[in-house]
Design a protein around this nucleic acid. Structure first.
Lengths: 111, 111
DNA sequence: AGCACTTTAGTACTTTAGTATGAATAGATT
DNA sequence: AATCTATTCATACTAAAGTACTAAAGTGCT
């Protein structure tokens, strides 16, 4: 009788643990399908768009809300240089302005 | 003996279901804490910052990458009006410019 | 009606952003 | 060595964004 009760308890515990992790696993899967945000960055897309390393740094700085002058200071180059990078980014992303570039970049999951 | 086996099966099933949902629930909670993106919008924060309905519409339009003129057309008002809203938004969000406002708004989870 | 707040809009101005163009330099590749 | 690409920077623009006011009209509330 004692060994019988122990068996039941162990079985219950195992089932609880197993189904707990099944719940966690299935939930993670379903959530990943839903939200295509906060996912990983699509590096292939960055290459595909021929966005250079420096241009990408500028793009990230834009998404931090920095001005061209602030980006220039951060990267130790002139504001002219940043303007060039931004202009090239806008062309490559087919964006009209920096906020538009951010919207597109998020959509493409490159930031 | 028969009724005894049935009870065990029912108990096992109940435990399985219960722990399955506990797994789902706890997983959802832990994921929400990690990624503060793609989560729900913090409407209390919007009120707290005293951002009006119209100002919030403008904020969303900014995050869509629209220019002041485009926002004006979309909301059927003048560009002057949009400039007023944007200026007020920048003050309320303590932002230096619209891209900075977007960064802050995302951080506060109001967009 | 009176009050508070939001939304609207204007003028005049300064600051940022963005375009177009040309050019120099460094690094990697052929 | 010659070529290609990325990065840098400048000048001279035009366009967009943002500030600082002022003010009128609409909305909701008491």
């Amino acid at each position: 009788m004692i060994s019988g009760n122990l068996n039941v308890e162990i079985v219950v515990a195992v089932i609880a643990v197993v189904f707990f992790f099944i719940g966690v696993y299935l939930n993670k899967r379903s959530l990943n399908k839903q939200m295509n945000s906060s996912t990983e960055i699509n590096y292939k897309k960055i290459e595909e768009l021929e966005i250079s390393k420096r241009e990408y740094e500028v793009l990230l700085a834009i998404s931090d809300g920095l001005s061209n002058k602030e980006i220039a200071n951060k990267l130790f180059v002139s504001e002219s240089t940043i303007k060039t990078h931004v202009s090239n980014l806008l062309v490559k992303l087919n964006a009209k302005r920096r906020t538009h570039a951010l919207q597109i970049a998020k959509d493409l999951q490159i930031i």
